[in-house]
Amino acid sequence: MNEFLILIHRDLKSKDASPSPEQMKEAIKPFQDWVGGIAAQNKLVGPPKRWDLDGRVVKKNDVVTNGPYSEIKESVGGLLLVRAESYDEAVEIAKGCPIIQWGATVEVRMAIQAV
């Protein structure tokens, strides 16, 4: 088994970045069901955390700016660690991410095993 990082990028700048409470409610349940389904296969590495939208960005010469990193269009909206045999399997898991249909991009990365 390998460990994979599933990184959910979303556009935090546009108007869609702050969904209404109804939209949130509508989105959270499928998200929980998706994570629950991964956990039910015993493929979840540790409980996922929820991340705020506040954020700080640190650059060279101690430059610190407020807000999550958003110079590229999409910032990190969430991340989880899963177990999978291969990229194919990890991608199958990632495809289930319900936020994709709201425009999120999901990046999948495999952890390099310690030698």
Binding site: Q32, D33, V35, G36, A40, L44, P48
Partner: peptide, 10 residues
């Protein structure tokens, strides 16, 4: 279902 999701995550 929600409670089982949380239980499995835990």
């Amino acid at each position: 279902l929600s409670l089982y999701n949380s239980l499995l995550i835990l």
